[in-house]
Structures are given as structure tokens and as C-alpha cells.
């Protein structure tokens, strides 16, 4: 295999000597496979095998020491009221976070990029800082701010503007508000950065041309700004949607593993409850597979709707 032919004579002898012993080290053909082997191994052991095993488990009753196939019994049990509650909570959470974490960062980034905007760096940094916290730490302080007592800060504010105090962790709407607010608060700054980066790619000549044509602000946004940031919109809606369906921590930090009337229960929380706490792994796996199906269907619809499949270049 003539892989590397050294031109330098001294080097050549050294290389040839080494080559006999460590041929593979010099092989341009073998090297990439060795480089990617960690990924292949990790894919086989930590993704493919668990995936097949999850599908397999979803048809089993898994008990310590004994495993039996029970057909689709797990799946027919999945669609029960508790699962629907979990799915409903998760779906509402996804809808709110996708809208808030795409729309607001887009508007904020356009404003921050505005030529009349001042102190841009300071504001950008302030909004980014929450991304440094973990959900647990951020959730702890949110729980203190939104404490159930009338004296807690959020309730003080409500009373100050003439509203009644709220027991934040005991109403369905306020529980959802807490979880959505926590996630939005943490991710706002990061998503703004995505939009700001995309806005740097907008061709300024196009704005001038639009001005000459007498375009108003909305027309300029629709025809010049939006096409440039559309990839970020697609990316963020997809990623926020998937992360929303994966949500667990934002609920855990407010409610641990059980919430009044399951107002904080999410699909992953349900998997945790059934699969880990109740040790019913087969059932937990079935819920997981259903969740994967839901995410897959929504992703495909979304990518079609946004036209991501059209440009196939």
C-alpha cells in the first residue's frame, strides 16, 4: 500500500523502518476509521442497543429476575387519564415555550440591532446571565420569589397593583406559568444571540433599496429581515419543541415528583414515575416510544410546513 512516500532520503529510511512495524499508523485509509471508532462504539452501545432494548422492553413486563412478553398490553395501558394529563401539560408547555422563545428573542434582537439602540452590550449581557444558572438553582430562587404566602415577593407585587395573592404551586394555570417562565427566563438571552448572529448577515443595501421604494417597517421586515433570519426561526422552533417534550427538571424543581392533581406532571416525569419509582420499566419504555412517535410526527410536519425539505441542494 503506497500511502505516504517521503521525498527526504533520511526520513525515508526512518519511515520505512517504522512502517514495517506500525503500518496502520501511516495508513490514510485506516486512520479515519480509527478516528471515528469512539463514535461508532458509543452509537452501538449507548444509542442503538438502548433504542432496540427500549422497543423490546415496551412489549415486556420487566420484573427483577423475570421478564415476560405481554404483547401490546403496555401500549393499551399508556392511553390512560394520567398520561393524557401529562401529555396535555407537556403540549401546553411546548406551545408556550416555542412561541415565547422564538418570537420574543426575534423582536428583542431586531430592537437591539436597531441603529437608535444604546447600551446594546450591557443589555445583551444582562439578558444572557440567566443561562449560567442550573434549573435547580434557578428554580430554588423562583420558588422563593413565587412563594405561596402573601408576604412572598410576587404576591406582594400582585397586592400592590390591587390583585389577590396566588398560591402559585397549587393552581394549574400558575403552575404552568412558573414552568414556562423559568424556561423562558433561562433561554431568552441565548436565543437572542442566535438572532443577533443571523442579523449580521442581512445586506444593508437591501434596506436602502427598500427605503428608496418607499417600503414601510413591516414590508422591510417581511421582505428583507425575515428571509435572513428564517433558518434561525426554523432551528429554534425545532430545538425548543424537542426540549419542551423532554421537559422534566422545570417541573421537578417546583413539585419534586408529585404535584396536586398532577398539574406539574410531564411526559418524561410520567416515565420517571412509572419506570423508576414504580419500577414498571416496560410500561415506562412504552410511554417513551409513544413520546418519540409524537416528536417525530410533529418534527416532520413542522419541517414540511417551514419548507425545510424543499431546498435540496
Amino acid at each position: 500500500m503506497p500511502t505516504s512516500i517521503p521525498t527526504n532520503k533520511n526520513a525515508a529510511t526512518v519511515v520505512v523502518k517504522r512502517k514495517r512495524r506500525f503500518n496502520i499508523l501511516y495508513s490514510k485509509k485506516a486512520a479515519p476509521y480509527i478516528f471515528v471508532s469512539p463514535f461508532i462504539l458509543s452509537f452501538l452501545i449507548l444509542s442503538l442497543y438502548p433504542f432496540i432494548s427500549a422497543v423490546n422492553m415496551s412489549f415486556q413486563r420487566v420484573l427483577p429476575g423475570q421478564v415476560e412478553y405481554i404483547g401490546t398490553a403496555n401500549y393499551s395501558r399508556v392511553f390512560n387519564p394520567t398520561f393524557y394529563t401529562a401529555l396535555q401539560n407537556t403540549t401546553i408547555y411546548v406551545i408556550f415555550t416555542v412561541i415565547i422563545l422564538t418570537l420574543l428573542p426575534m423582536v428583542f434582537a431586531i430592537f437591539l440591532n436597531h441603529r437608535l439602540m444604546k447600551f446594546t452590550n450591557f443589555f445583551r449581557a444582562s439578558i444572557f446571565i440567566p443561562a449560567l444558572t442550573s434549573v435547580i438553582v434557578a428554580g430554588t430562587i423562583f420558588r422563593m420569589i413565587f412563594g405561596d404566602s402573601e408576604a412572598a415577593f410576587a404576591n406582594q407585587v400582585l397586592q400592590f397593583i390591587g390583585l389577590n395573592p396566588v398560591e402559585w404551586r397549587y393552581n394549574a394555570w400558575s403552575a404552568m406559568f412558573l414552568m414556562v417562565f423559568l424556561a423562558s427566563w433561562r433561554w431568552m438571552g441565548v436565543n437572542i444571540l442566535y438572532f443577533l448572529a443571523a442579523l449580521q448577515n442581512v445586506n444593508n443595501d437591501l434596506y436602502e433599496a427598500a427605503d428608496i421604494d418607499g417600503a414601510n417597517a413591516w414590508q422591510k421586515f417581511k421582505n428583507v429581515t425575515f428571509p435572513a433570519i428564517k433558518p434561525v426561526v426554523i432551528f429554534l422552533t425545532t430545538i425548543t419543541m424537542i426540549n419542551g417534550f423532554r421537559m422534566f427538571e422545570e417541573s421537578f424543581v417546583f413539585f419534586e415528583t408529585s404535584s396536586p392533581g398532577n398539574i406539574g406532571l410531564t411526559v418524561v416525569g410520567y416515565i420517571y414515575q412509572e419506570g423508576i419509582q414504580r419500577n414498571d420499566m416496560g410500561f415506562g419504555a412504552a410511554v417513551g416510544i409513544v413520546l418519540l412517535g409524537i416528536i417525530f410526527v410533529i418534527s416532520v410536519i413542522q419541517l414540511y410546513a417551514t419548507g425545510a425539505f424543499k431546498k435540496d441542494d
Binding site: 442497543y49 422492553m57 417513551g288 416510544i289 416528536i295
Partner: peptide, 12 residues
């Protein structure tokens, strides 16, 4: 693919 789907088999 969400990690949470693979989490039970990995745990096992």
C-alpha cells in the same frame, strides 16, 4: 432523539 427515551434501558 431525546436521551429520555433511552434512559430506562441505559439505567437497566
Amino acid at each position: 432523539i431525546p436521551f429520555e427515551i433511552l434512559m430506562l434501558p441505559l439505567f437497566r
